[in-house]
Amino acid sequence: MDMPPKSILKKTAEKPADPRHLKVALHHANALEDRKRVERDVLEAIMTLMDFPASPNADAKRPSPADASHFQDAVLIFQPSDYDALIEERNIADRCGYALCSRPTRKARSTARKQFVDTDHGVQIVERKVLEVWCSDDCAKRALYVKVQLSEDPAWMRQGGLGEKIELMVENAEEHHKALPLRLKQEGASTSDDDKELLDAAWAAQADAMANLALERGEKPGQLSKANGDLIQDQIMERGFSIAPPQPPSLPAQASDHTMAIEGHVPRINRKDRDDDEDEDDAQDWDKLLPG
């Protein structure tokens, strides 16, 4: 009865290893290692940045050089989805989605899913979740300016290094010296060609998004509405995109999805109606509502 049962499973055949196979296997092993390392780094960066900035008085418009460069370095390995995750985690911790801002998020007046918000256009309906992502439209703009610069490629697959340094919108560029390339002169010779290209692309995307927004509101392209005016009359956002007619984005991938459409909280008129899906609870809703 109790005879030793034979293994029912196939014995693995033992063939001499093909050096080419070994090489491929090694390559995959290394890629996996790289990937694990990047994922761990992303996780650690998010853990740090979700409590950022350390000072309760830190101003998103004028970050300290140390905070700014920490943030720039940390997000360099991010993909846009990692950046969204950071925003989500900050929101859960009741912080404004922009990692250089020390303020809490805006609070809706009630827990209703749709909120009425006063704007220069009169009352608009906004998703509560979208409203509660940032402390202000200004932070939304600064945060999304970072997002469009992030590479869609996972950091372990990027050819030729991690990529360009991430630029920030700041009002105290002079304090940052070389840490932050000056953005004030778009045509300036101080930035490298690559920088200039990136900036132009970002501004083009911005202009494009603005134009889309304007069109949705029934305005003529290139003409600034009052609401838009509020958002762009920012000291550092000197001229350029508001005067020039909108141009199509020229940089692939990152610039093409119009994430620079800054008023994340403005619902699209022709947006797909998701109301049949009341329980849908995607924390990234703020992004979905962006045009594009």
């Binding site: 853990m47 985690e89 859960i92 924390a283």
Partner: peptide, 11 residues
Amino acid sequence: HDENVGMKQLR
């Protein structure tokens, strides 16, 4: 009891 649970609560 939180509606949204993230790394904050987990930590």
